[in-house]
Nucleic acid binder design. Sequence first.
RNA 1: GCCGUCGUGGCUUAGUGGUAUAGCGGCUGAUUCGUAAUCAGCAGGCCGGGGGUUCGAAUCCCCCCGACGGCUCCA
Length: 594
Amino acid sequence: MTVFIAVESTDEANPKDVAEKAVAEIKKTASQVNTDNVMLYPYAHLSSDLSSPKMAVSVMKDIENSLIDSFNVKRAPFGWYKAFKISCKGHPLSELSRTINPESESCGEGVDTEEEVVSEALKAESTAKSYWKVLSPDGVLHDVDDFNFNDHENLGTFVDHEISKSRAVEKVPPHVELMRRLEIADYEPGSDSGNMRYYPKGRLIKSLLERYVLDSSAREGAMEVETPLMYDMNHPTLKKYLDRFPARQYSIESDKRQMFLRFAACFGQFLMSHDMTISHHNLPMKMVELTRYSFRKEQRGELVGLRRLRAFTMPDMHTMCGDMDQAVEQFGRQYQMSIDVLKDVGIDVSDYEVAIRLTRDFYEENKEFITALAKKVNKPVLVEMWEKRFFYFVLKFEFNFVDALKKASALSTVQIDVENAERYDIKYIDQAGEAKRPVVLHCSPSGAIERCIYALLEKASMKAEGGEVPMLPVWLSPTQVRIIPIAERHMEFAEEIASRLQCRADIDDREETVGKKIRNAGQEWVPYVVVVGDREVESGNVNVTVREESKPKKPSKIEMSVDELNSRILAETAGMPQGHLPLAQKLSMRPRFI
RNA sequence: GCCGUCGUGGCUUAGUGGUAUAGCGGCUGAUUCGUAAUCAGCAGGCCGGGGGUUCGAAUCCCCCCGACGGCUCCA
């Protein structure tokens, strides 16, 4: 086992401690790979912030002396040019790195070890100092501690969540039970955690949402593209970008190349933009991709149902803008677009809280614009302000959904990126014929599709808690009309009704009692339930139970003609994507998934 | 990743060291039914996986996997 070591300037604070921790790590790894031979190799290239050579030699010798009793230790000389050959086994432990930080005293925390390379952005995030404010629609910036949240309970919850005054909950999130019971999605034990399976109903719901968001982006003028799922980790541009994005990646080996799975669509679109010829006439220029999937290797404890996944579907739209003015203008448009998209999905302004994150400079220069954002939603918003820019953006908003267990998670987001045009060498030609850097907007108008489903399920569950009847929006309901024939002789009429309805209508032809079929339709949250018997065959009209207007134990029943029912549903789902029944029309033909 | 709780037929679950429960679902039969569960019968279990303690383990101990909750983090 060869240990390449760089002693850094920070280690000078407590060289003994660092040496001890390094020894502990070496012993641990040596026992894992079952070796007695350890080579200690001073390797300055591991760090750009080295300690003094004297200190380094002493730490190296310390490590050597502590290992010498239990291992065959060799130490390469310090301060010489050396030639070496190294061979590496194809084994998970064959190459790994550790960052060891000194501590003033040993405080139980132990060694700070890193198996994966942690991006600079992740590290920056933990040190970034932010100021939390609440901005009310009148433009006043309140201190979080002084703001009265009494009339803004949800915002208070969200702020607590953000500033991490956590609250313990014992329950499983309601949407987890619902996603399974409604046969939407489920855990897949055969995959990595956070990678779900979607049953036909879930696939339909996802597909409708996906199509809707892509349509909305197209209406905004975005060009749809498709880019690879995996990229070379050592591509010089990407490598730098990886370091600036606060996410952990899945990495996979492909022959000799180390690849990583994309965690957003930025890579492909930026690499594409780099090769494009873009004129100022083309600006603002929008590109969109629906990533199926984006991969993020979130920490195990962070994964929950559909809220947080390791593989998720997300619309990712990028806008190239000529200058900051255009970027700000586009930011405003996309803010409105995100509100509209979520509204159509079934998530209203009252269901989420707005967070705006920006640098102090940006705020000072754009006070009115920022206030207008709060005005648009007509309620106070959380503002996180940084003295210095830590990330690639100067301004960002998120819409954060607050769920049944008072957890917040982000849906829509737009960011103004001032770094990546440079990094990817993206340029456009201005009026004067000169190459210029665009300002880039990142936009996910809906946020992750799975997270939208999570929000809809949580919202429905909160409604149920409040004594209402839970349901999905009609355009997203896998079955829109359930037709229940009373006896076999009514099947023909049932089929006729189904064929006359221009929506997803199915027929419960099972040999069950009417009561049971009604109950099952309710359990599936079917928006319209039609029971057909002799009376209907005779009158030609149908008796419809309308879920939307029902109260628990108080179904709202309306008699109407089949055409009336049809036009009612068409009106309700107008402008939204349509899809076919995800399962056999006859319920007797359907397998069970759960 | 760390800490905690949990893991029993497809699902929900009883069982705290001595014969593996029950309901739902599935299958078979009867019933052809008017708005939230018709009746009867049958099949279905390596008690998450591996190791250990014991005459004997679903039950006690250790390791692993997974889910959930907390820390942390995000779309």
